[in-house]
């Protein structure tokens, strides 16, 4: 028996909106730790890892570890039917072939339940070791989204370089080139407007902008994004999910031909 009650149901809507274009089907794993997911995009270039810790739910009952295979676009369709302020409860029996999403309006005057068929998904799970990164950039998530969107109108790839000068996002295309430099800046009115660059070593990596733009669908989840870089490793683009967890996107770099 699984029963997870999330008062901030809107968070789950935002999580699904940030996943559904990248991944078609995925297993949601429920354990005492929390509600999690790891999935790759269909071309196995990017990976997403979601964790919503059990403490973040108002009620979290998970009698035994369960893996719920769901089509994310169908799940997103169902969650779209919840109000942004609704309380969302996810329910499933141990041997269930469906999952129930229950939506309660904040003043309890409307209660809806949606039942979605589960599916068997044979997915590969990857072990991701904790890594020390050469550079970690924290910046406003909207700024990062803007940069990815702007650069993708000019080129297909972005070179992200971190030096003492700051973090530079560069692209080139048929019509020309573009470089955007963001400097370390903590003298801002609000902490979420800060850009914090921690650098052990300079690093420069090339990534496909198509994936970066897909990751930025998570922008409504968090004011800040963390971009962790090391030479010859996938970049990690992380958005916090309130105080209860995170969504991390891993993207393999491109190499020179």
């Amino acid at each position: 028996m699984l029963e997870l009650r999330l008062v901030q149901g809107g968070l789950l809507k935002k999580v699904l909106d940030s996943l559904k274009d990248l991944v078609n089907d995925a297993n949601f794993d429920c354990s005492a730790t929390g509600f999690s997911l790891q999935a790759m995009d269909s071309s196995h270039v990017a990976l997403v890892a979601l964790l919503l810790r059990s403490e973040g739910f108002e009620h979290y009952r998970c009698d035994r570890n369960l893996s719920l295979g769901m089509n994310l676009s169908n799940m997103a369709k169902m969650l779209k039917c919840a109000g942004n302020d609704d309380i969302v409860t996810i329910k499933a029996d141990d041997a269930a072939d469906s999952v129930t999403f229950m939506f309660e309006s904040p003043n309890q005057d409307k209660i809806a339940d949606f039942d979605m068929k589960l599916m068997d998904i044979d997915s590969e799970h990857l072990g991701i070791p904790e890594a020390e990164f050469q550079a970690i950039v924290r910046m406003p998530s909207a700024e990062f989204a803007r940069i990815c969107k702007d650069l993708s109108t000019i080129g297909d790839t972005v070179v992200i370089s971190v030096t003492k000068e700051g973090v530079k996002f560069s692209t080139r295309g048929d019509i020309g080139t573009a470089n955007i430099v963001c400097r370390h800046n903590t003298s801002v009115d609000k902490p979420e407007e800060a850009t914090i660059i921690e650098m052990e070593e300079t690093v420069s990596l090339t990534f496909a902008l198509r994936y970066m733009n897909s990751f930025t669908k998570a922008t409504p989840l968090a004011n800040q994004v963390t971009i962790s870089l090391s030479s010859d490793l996938p970049v990690v683009v992380e958005y916090k999910v309130a105080e209860m967890g995170h969504i991390r996107f891993y993207l393999a770099p491109k190499i020179e031909e």
Binding site: H44, G155, E257
Partner: peptide, 14 residues
């Protein structure tokens, strides 16, 4: 531009 690497090249299967 460049050759796209695969994410599975970096992490082992569990």
């Amino acid at each position: 531009r460049g050759i796209q690497r695969n994410i599975t090249e970096f992490y082992r299967s569990t």
